[in-house]
Design a protein around this nucleic acid. Structure first.
Lengths: 336, 336
DNA sequence: TTGAAAGCGCTAACAG
DNA sequence: CTGTTAGCGCTTTCAA
């Protein structure tokens, strides 16, 4: 591995000049520039970004803290974020965390000297936001947000669930189950609000056995659905707080020999890729495809490049759009 | 942001001692260690890993060059790799590249000073392998490999396709289509070999209209399937070289109102998560779930920590296992 | 337009 | 067991 000093020697210039042709080419005389460029070529010189970072105190790297890629939503946002970052000349350091233990993230971020952080996994009361704010590391949340504010881009969650709930009620459903992650995440907290509200508006009961806020692991969801569908009285519709949950839910429903939507209507939220697949055709609530990740990334780079500042908090709420497909239908569309 | 010098001052020791309690705690007297630890605590000191990297010439970071996460296989391997790396104390820098342009990857890798590279996107004749070998950056390929050898973990691709082809022939299929990515990737090259061989063994014809090696973009695949199914004579089975291809293929088949498997049998390879979903139930060829990514990562860390060496090339071939589900059935199981 | 020199924050000899 | 010192490879004044 040759260094800029080697290049300098070969080109017969000072090391500082090598640095100049790399960072500010027009500040160096064309002839010398050529000599340096040639030397770089011959030595296959590649600048050491670590050394550069140490002096500039920037890394052109962002950290992405996301949920597991098993969840199509995170796979899609991660894909678009990494893509976009690359396009902007940034590298992406990823962490796919368990919901529960978003650990010494602060130390991780600080020690890695990333230029910014994109976070989709944060609890409502997570102290991380304040910590990051104190040390002024640009940070944008997407999908979820924290109580303490910060920059974020989220879906209008209450409306999203409200729409799908109204849709189901409009189809004649009264016995509606709600399957969600735990409410210490803003996503699930906000979505549950929308559900409750519409149910109340219509004077409908939220039966405790049909309303669950659980860990969003496959096992937990499977167990929950299985238990629910083994009771004597079944709901006629299940609203899932995410497509990922709905997909798992669908798996169990079909496994138990029930038909969708004839026996049970099913809906999700997020409009992930699989939701539109013809073998699935999940009724869901969408927001512009890939938008959330890209918008979040875009916002982050703005913060990084223009400098963060309290006044213009980036707080974007995407408008939801109900997408009716084949998993929801009129109640008792075939007798039961 | 306080540095180790600040800590040293506060604790009344030299900066080198601070470094010691971080890297070799037992080499420093318990009392002084405590003083230093306290100072670290009070100042909220977090070591600057950039500076450390500059001197140690290691980053505890690996690069992962993977295909798009839209493909479930890559989503699963990426998830497990990042997870595993984190568990080993490594960070992961990810790139989700387009198949075609795996660009100045070499410069990228060199300048980032990653400790190792995991690659699932490489053409058979890619010069990158030799380049990396020359500069001695530990590097493991998974899923795909290069002509020039190197370390890799792959599926026994010819056998994988052979098994599924025999399965279909056993079901009475004679008009079998084959849908694959381009053969400048080892995966597709090797899989096509298995297909050809078994077809020949059984004296079956590979019709050009039914045998395509195309870009694995959704659009290309959709167009191909659509064209194929609009011709007067239809195949009775389509073997797809990956689950991702099969999933897209299924989408179009269903859209065109054809039934699976009654009209057309369909199979994939990889046993991705969605393949087992009850709405899909894709017949496929599996290898231990998540194994490929994890094995590759494991191998890489071995190379990094024990040191690379020519003699013990890591070349692992996973045994395939046919998983028969609901998308394949006897030919003409209902009249056509 | 170029070179010399001072660090960035840390690790790792080498003395003591 | 601890302090002193010399870099790691680069950017960035400051002079020339």
């Amino acid at each position: 591995m040759s260094s800029s000093i080697d290049v300098a020697k070969k080109a017969g210039v000072s090391q500082a000049t090598v640095s100049r042709v790399l960072n500010n080419p027009q500040s160096v005389k064309p002839e010398t520039r050529m000599k340096v460029l040639q030397a770089i070529e011959q030595l296959q010189y590649v600048p050491n970004l670590i050394a550069r970072s140490l002096v500039t105190n920037t890394t052109r790297t962002i950290a992405l803290i996301s949920g597991s890629l098993q969840n199509g939503f995170f796979a899609e946002t991660t894909d678009s974020i990494v893509q976009f970052a690359k396009h902007k000349g940034y590298k992406t350091l990823v962490y796919f965390e368990d919901e529960n233990k978003v650990p010494d993230l602060f130390d991780l971020i600080m020690s890695s000297k990333v230029d910014g952080v994109l976070l989709s996994l944060i609890k409502l009361d997570d102290p991380l936001v304040e910590q990051l704010e104190r040390v002024k590391v640009p940070c944008v949340f997407f999908n979820r947000r924290s109580k303490s504010g910060g920059h974020y881009v989220v879906l209008d969650n209450p409306s999203a669930v409200a729409e799908v709930t109204r849709h189901l009620i409009g189809l004649g459903h009264r016995k509606i189950a709600y399957l969600s992650g735990k409410t210490d995440f803003s996503t699930f907290q906000e979505r549950s609000v929308g559900f409750k509200q519409v149910m109340q508006e219509h004077g409908l009961e939220m039966k405790p056995e049909w309303t669950s806020f659980i860990d969003t692991t496959t096992e937990e969801i499977e167990r929950m659905v299985f238990t629910m569908l083994n009771r004597p009285e079944l709901p006629t519709a299940i609203i899932c707080a995410t497509d990922a949950i709905a997909l798992i839910c669908m798996d169990i429903i079909l496994m138990m020999g029930l038909r969708i939507p004839e026996d049970i209507s099913l809906s999700g939220i997020d409009n992930t890729r699989m939701a539109s697949h013809r073998a699935v055709q999940l009724t869901t609530v969408g927001h512009q495809k890939f938008a959330m990740g890209t918008i979040a990334a875009e916002s982050l780079f703005e913060l990084i490049e223009k400098g963060d500042s309290e006044r213009n908090a980036i707080q974007i709420t995407l408008r939801p759009e109900l997408i009716v497909r084949k998993t929801t239908g009129p109640v008792n569309s075939s007798g039961s």
